[in-house]
Each structure stands twice: as structure tokens, then as C-alpha cells.
Write a protein that binds this DNA or RNA. Structure first.
Lengths: 329, 329
DNA sequence: TTGTAGGCGTTATCAA
DNA sequence: TTGATAACGCCTACAA
């Protein structure tokens, strides 16, 4: 790799001058600029980001920490982040945390060691020293922390909507699946749903789950129908679980939505392709990723920011695992 | 952030000594070691990777270039890569190429600028200067290039198997979906399928497609049944497209697999959750990611490598979009 | 067993 | 308008 020295030599100028033309800082005569530019081309020179980063004490790298890219909700988020960052000339160091504090800490540490200028994290523990003591901007994604920069959807409201729409469509023996206890958005949805159900005086059962993995989801779905065979409506903690419930319901010969209605959460790409297609509470994942990245970029540039917490809309997306509302008058 | 100087001062030794204890290189007295270690803890010191990287002219970073993390096949790959790299103390700079040479080039360039020590790339153009001129190890993932390090599944064989199994299960009016022309694995599968079909003297139709996006897949599925209404077997270019075909077939009131059999490719997590669940040619995505990462790590450590190209097995995964073979004697 | 000093490739300050 | 040069934080000869 050619260095700035090689370029300087080739162009017959000093490294300072080369640096000036590269960074467009300070005066440089047109003729010299041209000489330098030809030298750069001739040597295929590109500046060493590491040396830059060392000197400036900041890089063009940001850290992205997601629970598990294998969960179909996150690729959309990640893509949104990536696209926005790419447009702003930042690169991403990526890690999966598995919702595990230790891993999180390790990643954040290596992020810092690599001089990242900002972090986007989907963590359940934003109020930890891990993040509090960071002296670079952090944006929480799909998570909140009071008053700290974050982009998230209102899970509580989503849960409420799910419950209301399900009741409006006639279910009376509802089972609510409570997502993993340590995952905030899952608990928010759960709370919202049982709140709305209680408000309306509708009884409900609860099935606890402890992960969002595809394989385990199947088990809980089985459990659900064994323990609560008369369930006529399921509010799942997300679309993965909803998909498993749907699969199991069909396997048991139930008619969906006539015997059981199902509402998921997220609207992962797959949901619309299921048969019957899945009614769900949509979160605009891609846009959330973009918004988070955009917010982070602004934070990095130290622009004065008004809205540091961005709440994205959650929308009831009616498809075929729920009945039509007018079927019930 | 504390620097090695601060630690040295705090411990009353020279930076060289601190460096020695950190890197476990050279002699250092037990007492001094202890002093240094306390200083490190007291100051919460962690070495600046950027400075290290600058000096050594290599980092602990590798570049991962995937077409589109939003395509459900890739998160599994990415996760495999990440897990293996994480275990070997490497971090990942991640980018989506959209199968676009320009983007690829840009990413590779910034990878190099950041001193990555290796690259894992899923590219359709391994034989380009972009990769040839790289003087760090590159592993091609889900792609091959003659004799260069790569981890991939045999698409041709997969296509062949799909065709054979479909014919064995009685389909005679088969439609083969030809994936995007510029995507190698897609073409390999296609070739394999039509080869096997021709060998057996079975006529077939072809439907061309140009991406793997969920939304477009729906369009091609419609097209398929409009143009070839008597199709009784579809070999899709991957599970995304297969899912769309399944969805459309059911929408048209066809019975799957009795009226139409469908075989996909990849075995994405969703495939087993569809109803009916999708028969497919499985690629072990997660393992492929791991294998690629492992190979790269060995290449970086300059271990003598025997098998630089690792072909992973492709397996016929029989589920419910195909008939049972004994139903036909 | 330990310390001094030079250099990795840049940028920015200061003189010229 | 340009050039020397001192950092940035670390590692490694080489000397002591």
C-alpha cells in the first residue's frame, strides 16, 4: 500500500501538501494540486484510516449491537442502519449480544478500543455503566431509556391495540403469550394487552415463553393448545411465535380465523406470505434502523438535537388470521 | 481513556515493561508484573486497538460482505461467521453489497483502509482485481472460484436432486424458476435441475426471475400460474420464491402437494413453519458461515491449509409440499 | 530484567 | 502557498 510519503515523493512535494489536497484544508496552488492528484492516481493511493483514526482519536466506524441477527425482525433494522450509515460514509462493526450482558460489555469494549464514534444498541440494560460511562453518543434501538437517545415503537400501545382488535372481532377466550421476561419490548406488549383486556373485563390465560427461537416457539404453541384447548384467540409476543401458533392450530385441524384468531407483532417479511397470512401489529423495522442511524449521525456531528427519543408508529395490519369486524356487526 | 503511558507512570515502570506484560512477551519480574497489573485495573486500561493496528499493520478486524442481510438465507450465514470470529477474538465490519460491483469495491476498499486482516465475501465476481489484488486472505462464501478459498454448497447437484425427487413423486408438467442471471448459485441450481430433467426426458417450462425480494416473488408466482396453468410441479430458485409460489397456489385453490408439488432451496428457518411445510434442498447456512470463518482464521494464522475449498453437503429435506414417494409405487 | 527511542501513517501547528 | 515536525498510542530493537 502506498503511503502519503510515497505520494509526496512522487509528486515532488511535502506530505503536508498532500494532506492538504486530500482533506481540502488550507491553500494549495492549482498546479501543485494537479501534480498531487496525478500521483495519487498513479499510486492508487487511499489514506490509511487507521493512522487517521489514531491521530484524530476518532474513526469513521460505528458499533451496532443487536440481540440476534437470526431473529427475522433484526435484519430489517440492521439494513436500515447500514443504508443510512453507508450514505454518511460510516462503516459498521457488528455484533450479536444474545441479550447477554457479558457479551454486550465485551463488544462495547472492543468498539471503544477501535475508536468507534458512536454506538447503536438494542439492549435491555441501557441504564448500566456500560452505556452511561461511554463518552461517545449511543442510540438505543427498539429499546428506550428515559430521555436518552432512542428509536422505538410503543409496545404497550401495540399490545393494547392487539387486544382491542381481537375482542372487537369476537374472541372471548383469549390466551396472551408473555414473551421473555428480560426483553423489554416483549413485556411492554404483554402489559398493554392484559391492560386492555382487563379494562374490557375479558378473561384471559397466559402462556409464558422464554425466547424467540423458531424451534422453541413450536413447543410453546403445542403447550398453549394443550393447556388451554378452548382458546379462541391468541395474542402472540411476536410474529415468530404467532407463526408457530398458526402452524400448530392448523395441525390440530382448527380453522383459522373461525375457530381461533391470531395476532402477531412486528410484521416480519414472512408474515404476509403465510397461509392464512398473519394479522399483526406492525413495527416499521427498516425505518427504525434508518432513523436510529440518522439520529446517531446527527449526534456525532454534534448538531443540536431536539428530539432525542423518536417513537415510531405501530399499526394494526389486518390480514387473514383475524375475522372481518363487520362479521360481528 | 488511559494510555499505556498512564499505566507506566502509575506503576512506576516504563511503557516497554507494560507492553511486555500485556502481550506476555519477554521477561518481566513477578513483582513488577503485579504492580503493572494493579495499575491496569486501577485505571481501567485497555489497549488502543487502533494504535496497535497502525504499528503492526494489521488489526483484529475482518470484513464481511454479504448481498443482503434482509434475505433470510444470510442471517444464518452471518451468525455462523460471527460466532466463530468472536471465539477467535476477531470483530466484523459488515456490509451489504446488493450484488453490486461498485458497492463491493467501495466496501473492500474501506476494509483495506481499516487494516482488516481478512475478508469473507459472497460475491458473483471473485475473479476480479478487487479480490485478486488483495494481499490479505479472502474466503468466498456461498460462492466458488477455482481453487481459491471458498465454502459453498453444490448448487448443481442440489438442482439435480430437486428435479429427480420431483419426478420420482410423479410431476410431469414441471416449471423451473430460473433465478437472477447474475447470481451464480441460482444459475447452478437451475442448470442442475434442467440437466436432470432433460436426462430423464421430462419436458419443462421456465419462468425467469430477477431478484429474491419477497415482494417481487409474489409477482412471479402469479405469472407462473397464468402462463403455465397446468404446472404440476415447481422447482423454485430458493425458499423465498417457493414460499410465494405456495402462497399463490393456495390462493388459486390448488391443493398442495396433490395438484402441484413445490421444492425450494436453502431451508430458511421459516420453511418448516409454513402450512404445508416446505420441501426443500437444504444448505447448512450456519455451518457454512462457521466453516468460512474458521478457514479464514487459519489462513490468517498462515497455517498450512490442505483444503482451501470446502464443499458442504446439500440435502433433500422432505416435507409437505411434495407427495410421498410410495404413493406412486 | 528493565528502559530509551524510533517508527507505524496521518494531521495540524508553526515558520518560512 | 509550502515544508518541517511534533504528536496520536503502541510495539520492538537495542542498550543498559
Amino acid at each position: 500500500m502506498a503511503t502519503i510519503r510515497d505520494v509526496a515523493k512522487h509528486a515532488g512535494v511535502s506530505v503536508a501538501t498532500v494532506s492538504r489536497v486530500i482533506n481540502e484544508t488550507g491553500y494549495v496552488h492549482d498546479d501543485t494540486r494537479k501534480k498531487v492528484e496525478t500521483a495519487i492516481k498513479a499510486l492508487h493511493y487511499t489514506p490509511n484510516e487507521v493512522a487517521r483514526s489514531l491521530f484524530k482519536r476518532k474513526s469513521r466506524l460505528i458499533g451496532l449491537l443487536l440481540p440476534d441477527i437470526t431473529n427475522p425482525f433484526f435484519p430489517e433494522l440492521a439494513r436500515g442502519v447500514e443504508d443510512e450509515m453507508q450514505e454518511n460514509d460510516f462503516r459498521i462493526i457488528f455484533g450479536n449480544s444474545d441479550e447477554n450482558m457479558k457479551k454486550e460489555k465485551e463488544y462495547i469494549q472492543t468498539f471503544v478500543q477501535n475508536n468507534v464514534v458512536g454506538v447503536i444498541a438494542s439492549t435491555n440494560h441501557p441504564d448500566t455503566d456500560t452505556y452511561r460511562k461511554l463518552n461517545i453518543p449511543v442510540v438505543f434501538l427498539d429499546r428506550t431509556a428515559d430521555n436518552r437517545p432512542s428509536v422505538y415503537a410503543d409496545g404497550r400501545e401495540g399490545g393494547r391495540i392487539a387486544a382491542q382488535e381481537m375482542v372487537a372481532r369476537g374472541s372471548r377466550q383469549i390466551t396472551v403469550m408473555q414473551g421473555p421476561k428480560h426483553i423489554r419490548p416483549a413485556q411492554d406488549r404483554f402489559k398493554g394487552a392484559i391492560e386492555a383486556l382487563s379494562d374490557q373485563g375479558i378473561a384471559f390465560n397466559v402462556v409464558k415463553t422464554s425466547s424467540f427461537s423458531f424451534t422453541e416457539a413450536g413447543t410453546w404453541a403445542k403447550e398453549l393448545f394443550e393447556q388451554h384447548p378452548f382458546t379462541d384467540g391468541v395474542i402472540a409476543s411476536n410474529d415468530i411465535v404467532a407463526t408457530a401458533v398458526l402452524h400448530e392450530a392448523l395441525r390440530l385441524g382448527k380453522n383459522v380465523p373461525d375457530d381461533v384468531q391470531i395476532i402477531g407483532f412486528d410484521d416480519i417479511p414472512l408474515s404476509s406470505l403465510l397461509t392464512p397470512s398473519l394479522t399483526t401489529i406492525r413495527q416499521p423495522a427498516y425505518d427504525m434502523g434508518r432513523a436510529a442511524a440518522n439520529l446517531l449521525v446527527r449526534l456525532i456531528d454534534d448538531v443540536n438535537i431536539d428530539n432525542k427519543t423518536i417513537q415510531m408508529p405501530v399499526t394494526f395490519t389486518e390480514r387473514d388470521t383475524t375475522r372481518k369486524v363487520n362479521q360481528h356487526g
